[in-house]
């Protein structure tokens, strides 16, 4: 499709995703700037932020660790699936924090641009849900009196799909 045709029918070609795992604090503007595009009428975004409580305990911070090359590869696969499901999506940007993440700060930021809002919002939801189920990233919750590695509920489905059942062997 030529640039002129692209403008006429209101859609641009899909762009490769922006994927970044980083130690420094995340800022939403960073992912939004990555996806903004004149052909898009919608940018949907999601921030996953550190909550000050979990399971009745006071949380003081989170600590993120990743198997970085596989995490980036997995997130790229999720983005490719999402772009196949929502062809009108122009670009997806994902940034994930590594290391310490204080209360209120973002552990994951996602932005999706599309011609229309429904595709951008649905795609954004899909990307965060699949990252939580599949990306090899771990968070340790830090409490006043200790710490604990957490487990996403979605991991059970990933295990069941690979091991054939969700039970403990």
């Amino acid at each position: 499709m030529s640039a002129a045709e692209s403008v006429t029918n209101g859609t641009g070609a899909q762009l490769p995703p922006h994927i970044c795992l980083r130690e420094d604090p995340l800022h939403l503007e960073s992912v939004i700037q990555q996806v903004e595009d004149g052909s898009c009428g919608a940018v949907a975004s999601f921030m996953g932020t550190t909550r000050n409580h979990s399971g009745g305990k006071e949380v003081t911070a989170l600590d993120y660790e990743a198997y970085a090359p596989m995490a980036e590869k997995t997130i790229a696969e999720v983005c490719a699936e999402a772009q196949a499901k929502w062809p009108q999506v122009r670009r997806i940007a994902v940034e994930h924090k590594l290391g310490s993440c204080p209360i209120g700060q973002s552990g994951v930021n996602i932005a999706v641009s599309s011609a229309h809002r429904a595709d951008a919002m649905d795609c954004c939801r899909y990307v965060i849900d699949e990252i939580k189920a599949r990306a090899p990233i771990w968070k340790r919750e830090i409490y006043a009196d200790g710490s604990e590695w957490r487990e996403n509920a979605e991991w059970r489905e990933t295990i069941a799909a690979k091991k054939g059942c969700g039970c403990k062997h």
Partner: peptide, 8 residues
């Protein structure tokens, strides 16, 4: 070895 994940 990938123990239970908790990203996001």
């Amino acid at each position: 070895l990938i123990p239970p994940i908790s990203g996001g």
